[in-house]
Design a protein around this nucleic acid. Structure first.
Lengths: 348, 348
DNA sequence: TATTCTTCTGAAAGCGCTTTCGCAAACGCT
DNA sequence: AGCGTTTGCGAAAGCGCTTTCAGAAGAATA
């Protein structure tokens, strides 16, 4: 007992199994299993012997055997779209933290740049995971329906369930946040003609943010000018083109809600190129508070989304579903507006 | 046969096993296994019957059973430090692509913000994965040594093996890239006093980049002024402070190699605050080409690291190691210098 | 002391696959 | 026709666990 390391038996090259532990401790494998899992009372003396034996042999239960016997994978699947910028790390951290805490592993699968996966990766299928977290844009609706039909526990991230499917989802308060952002422009900075850079059509986020934008107008008795609602696509190039066109066409506006921070990059670039001052001539607010937001010129006022918490909460819901505890059909996490220079706050 | 979905047997609620398939096809389970895996010749007629049966029953092999029988997990472990910015998505995409291509799943574990994990997550231990990809800063050296002692196949990302351990690693051409970046400042822009914002002490990346910085000087017969080598820590706040101090102390310099893009954010901010013009007075180059690099003012000249390829190559090496094929002890992936405004290229 | 509960422990039957081994049948060769 | 070879398939033995079931002690009751 001088090695501090988990080492394979130097002779056989093989690691210990439950039988080895049982033999060394002079008990049956059932007993070993019981002390490992705490599934039934074991007397103090025996427990001590078994634990000593496990130590000596550097015993590590083999997941595959356990999974086979329990018919559970003790694993959460995470299906995500890789495009998601730096949005990604926090999400993963949130999911992983909760998963580990509850004794689940995390199996990852990504949808390539070819858009949503139309077929479920085999690794996430039934029996290989106990449930899967599906992030927006990672899985085609057909595949999602197929998955749901297998009764695999499912939770959606930043998306709502397609018609007829009863799948819990967790996302952020998109509508309220968008409304607050736009209202800030209206109320605090007196803007009256705020451009909306619309997100991709298929994303739920786009939909709700647009709704928030409209609500902000309604609440202040303002009409939404269709000419101000242009494509942004959560993409800086599309956004830049749209803003440049508005400028070229001489459409008057004094604010932009860019839908997300990426689009904000493009918007700022177009404004800058045209010599339009931000925030004096046009106030800009983004969405997401990605790392680059604070580095932009001027620093971007934007909505901070609690991405890590989204991941954590989604994992919690999924685990609840797996363990047949009640779940929240829809979870909306609150956001905060981060005031920086681009809206006109914090001096000029 | 009218459901398009993989569905559990509506009666038992349970999915088909290999025996069900065998029974329906009128063959033995061995034969089913053979057609599933292609491990032995099976006659055309039988193969067709088996395949039909699998279709009918929506048969999906259970990973746990297969893993137990083969004593392999068909899974790659990926241990990473979450802090890594948007560096993260591409890396994952690279790893995952290769893993899937070779029939492996991807199990993820992250080191929280508490620094490197001192203990190996159980899920990545021996028998739960066939091998693990360890990214820089995710696993404490002690844990790494312990892992290595178990003979688990290991590949390091952006780090080199601790003394005495023979672990392949894949990273980028840090030294050459840093040298090229600094030489660009020296040669193309005539800079003679280039600041080095040093990275965190423990990261291999820091070490090699600093070496490249020195080499660039040596090659041009320039001395490195120790006063110009200040902490950057790959962190914008630290970098900002360091640059601000140099400015305050009146240390003359005409260029900065920031070590990474995050530090560049801080450097630019400090320079801007002091009214120093970039690139006229001070030329700046970063490292990484993160998304924010192009969005900075001025857009940042920086080294583009092929992050996705790093992930892919690391996965390839790990799989080679697992399958006992020869591996490359060290893989250095080439980088490119992306010229933008901050160094003086592309107009002003 | 005899009897009924508790507590603890072991034997053994799976979980769903892979894989060796052996046997037939079909093929080629002399 | 006789003899090895292939080729295609099934029986059965695991892989390393969990979990029921029943039995053996020991504690509590009568």
């Amino acid at each position: 007992m001088n090695s501090r390391y988990l080492a394979p038996d130097p002779v056989t090259g093989d690691t210990a199994t439950i039988s080895d532990v049982a033999r060394l401790a002079g008990v049956s494998i059932s007993t070993v299993s019981r002390v490992v899992n705490g599934t039934a009372p074991v007397s103090g003396a025996v427990m001590a012997r078994v634990e000593a034996a496990m130590q000596t042999l550097h015993y590590v239960p083999r997941a595959a055997a356990r999974n086979l016997a329990t018919r559970r994978a003790h694993t959460l699947g995470l299906m995500l779209a890789v495009s998601s910028g730096d949005f990604f790390g926090p999400l993963l951290a949130g999911v992983e933290g909760v998963a580990v805490e509850h004794g689940y592993d995390l199996l990852i699968s990504t949808a390539g740049r070819n858009g949503p996966q139309t077929e479920l990766p085999r690794s996430l299928g039934r029996h290989n995971t106990d449930g899967v977290l599906v992030s927006a844009g990672s899985l085609h609706e057909t595949a999602l329906r197929a998955l749901h039909a297998t009764e695999t526990p499912l939770v959606l991230l930043h998306a709502s369930a397609p018609d007829g499917l009863n799948i819990p989802c967790v996302t952020i308060e998109n509508k309220a946040a968008a409304r607050a952002a736009v209202e800030h422009l209206i109320e605090a900075h007196g803007r009256r003609r705020v451009v909306l850079l619309r997100g991709p059509d298929l994303l739920a986020d786009s939909y709700w943010r647009e709704l928030g934008y409209r609500q902000a107008h309604t609440r202040h008795g303002l009409d939404v000018d269709p000419a101000l609602c242009v494509p942004g696509d959560f993409n800086h190039e599309v956004a830049e083109r749209s803003v440049a066109r508005l400028l070229a066409e001489g459409v008057p506006f004094d604010g932009i809600f860019t839908g997300d921070d990426d689009a904000a990059v493009g918007a700022l670039r177009a404004l800058h190129a045209a010599g339009v001052r931000v925030p004096e001539d046009v106030a800009v607010v983004g969405f997401d508070d990605q790392r680059l937001a604070a580095a932009l010129t001027p620093p971007l006022t934007t909505v901070r989304a609690p991405t890590e918490e989204v991941g954590a909460e989604a994992a919690r819901q999924l685990i609840a579903l797996i363990e047949r505890r009640p779940v929240q059909p829809v979870t909306l996490l609150p956001t905060t507006l981060v005031h920086r220079r681009s809206c006109g706050c914090l001096g000029v």
